[in-house]
Simulated assay, not measured.
Amino acid sequence: MGVDKISLEKEPVKIAEGIYWVGYSDENRGLHCNPYLIIEGEEAVLIDGGNRDDFSTVMLKILRTGLVPSQITRLIYQHYDPDLCGSLPQLESIINNDALRIISHAENNVFIHYYSAKTKKLDYRQLNNHYDFATGRRLEFYGTPYCHLPGSFVTYDTQTKTLFSSDLFGSFDDRWTLMLELGEACDECRDRKKCLENTANCPIKGIVKFHQIIMTSNNALTNALDTIEKLDIERIATQHGSIISTKEDVKTIIGHLRSIENIGIDLLLAGEFI
Rank of each mutant, 00 (worst) to 15 (best):
Met1Phe: 10
Val3Leu: 15
Val3Arg: 12
Lys10Asp: 05
Val13Phe: 08
Ile15Ser: 06
Trp21Cys: 09
Ser25Thr: 03
Asn28Arg: 15
Gly30Lys: 07
Gly30Ala: 00
Leu31Val: 13
Cys33Glu: 13
Tyr36Pro: 03
Glu43Ile: 03
Glu43Phe: 08
Leu46Ile: 15
Leu46Lys: 05
Asp48Asn: 15
Asp54Ile: 07
Asp54Thr: 13
Thr65Gly: 02
Ile76Met: 05
His79Gln: 06
His79Ser: 06
Asp81Gln: 04
Ser87Met: 08
Ile95Asn: 04
Asp98Leu: 01
Ala99Cys: 02
Ile103Met: 11
Glu107Trp: 13
Asn108Gln: 09
Asn109Ser: 11
Val110Lys: 15
His113Cys: 11
Ser116Pro: 06
Lys120Trp: 05
Lys120Val: 08
Asn128Ala: 12
Tyr131His: 05
Asp132Glu: 11
Asp132Thr: 08
Phe133Pro: 00
Ala134Thr: 03
Leu139Glu: 02
Phe141Asn: 02
Tyr142Ser: 02
Pro145Thr: 07
His148Gln: 07
Gly151Val: 11
Phe153Gln: 04
Leu163Asp: 06
Leu168His: 03
Ser171Pro: 10
Phe172Lys: 13
Asp174Gly: 05
Leu178Val: 02
Glu184Phe: 01
Asp187His: 15
Glu188Thr: 02
Asp191His: 09
Cys195Asp: 08
Ala200Trp: 09
Ile207Lys: 09
Val208Asp: 00
Lys209Asn: 06
Phe210Gly: 01
Gln212Thr: 07
Asn218Arg: 15
Asn218Ile: 13
Leu221Lys: 03
Asn223Thr: 15
Leu225Pro: 04
Asp226Lys: 13
Ile228Ala: 06
Glu229Gln: 15
Asp232Leu: 04
Arg235Phe: 00
Ala237Thr: 10
Gln239Gly: 12
Ile243His: 04
Ile244Glu: 02
Ser245Arg: 07
Glu248Pro: 01
Val250Asp: 02
Ile254Cys: 05
His256Thr: 01
Leu257Arg: 03
Leu257Asn: 01
Glu261Gln: 14
Gly264Tyr: 00
Ile274Pro: 03
